Amino acid sequence: MDSQGSLRHALKEWAVAVKALERGETALVVRKGGIREKAFAVPKTRFLFFGGYEHQKPEQLKPLYHDLLASIPQRKDDGPVLFTSFAEVEAAHEISEPDELDALDPYHIWTPEYAESRLKWRPKKPLTVLVLRVHLLEEPVELPYSPSYGGCKSWIELEESVSTAGSRPALDDEAFQGLARPALEVLRGIRPAPVGP
């Protein structure tokens, strides 16, 4: 991958989910969008992770990830923003049926109950499942917080770009394929979700 360049688009996601993605413990993000959004859409194929801290709840995570959550330093969501990685979309699919979600349970970090609650919220809208290839920035980048980053929304356009020069994949090709393949098998035949450029 050409690691030169920079990114300004970021996906808001719990810091514990970002850390699990960075450690190669999952490749999946399951989303339905924020309260301010009519639907969840994927406007870019590459984006930074904008970690959120204040709403993380251990009871919504599988027990396997409780220690990981406890290890994450507490930061304020309206304080300086720390970027450590970005993602490339390997696959994106829309699911609407509980059995489709159940089949993906081994591959994401959420409890079945929480994943199901995401599916049931705004039931006319599908749940988007993203399979992501994560890349670690050469060094963490901290940027000032802007009020425009606040609110219950999925995507942030940063006021400053973050360089991706010197980044490296969190997992090598073989390890990533081994991690993603089982979920991709489940998703085969399920309607793809549109992804921007």
Score class of each variant (00 low, 15 high):
2 D>R: 12
4 Q>P: 05
4 Q>K: 13
5 G>S: 11
6 S>I: 02
12 K>R: 12
14 W>E: 12
17 A>Y: 01
19 K>L: 13
21 L>Q: 03
21 L>Y: 04
23 R>S: 12
30 V>K: 09
33 G>W: 06
34 G>Y: 01
37 E>L: 01
40 F>N: 06
40 F>L: 12
40 F>W: 04
43 P>F: 03
43 P>G: 08
45 T>S: 14
48 L>D: 00
49 F>V: 03
54 E>F: 03
54 E>S: 13
55 H>M: 09
55 H>K: 10
59 E>V: 15
65 Y>G: 03
68 L>K: 04
70 A>T: 07
73 P>A: 06
75 R>F: 04
76 K>D: 10
102 D>P: 06
102 D>N: 12
103 A>W: 01
104 L>G: 05
105 D>A: 12
106 P>G: 07
107 Y>K: 07
107 Y>T: 06
108 H>D: 01
108 H>C: 00
109 I>L: 13
112 P>T: 03
114 Y>I: 01
116 E>T: 15
117 S>R: 11
120 K>Q: 15
121 W>T: 08
122 R>N: 14
129 V>T: 01
130 L>R: 00
130 L>T: 01
132 L>I: 09
132 L>Y: 10
134 V>D: 04
134 V>M: 07
139 E>W: 11
139 E>I: 09
141 V>D: 08
142 E>Y: 03
144 P>Y: 06
146 S>H: 15
149 Y>P: 07
149 Y>I: 07
152 C>E: 08
154 S>H: 03
156 I>K: 00
157 E>G: 08
157 E>C: 04
160 E>R: 10
160 E>A: 13
162 V>I: 15
163 S>C: 08
164 T>D: 10
166 G>R: 11
172 D>Y: 05
175 A>C: 09
179 L>V: 07
181 R>W: 10
186 V>L: 07
186 V>Q: 11
186 V>C: 06
189 G>Y: 07
191 R>W: 10
191 R>F: 07
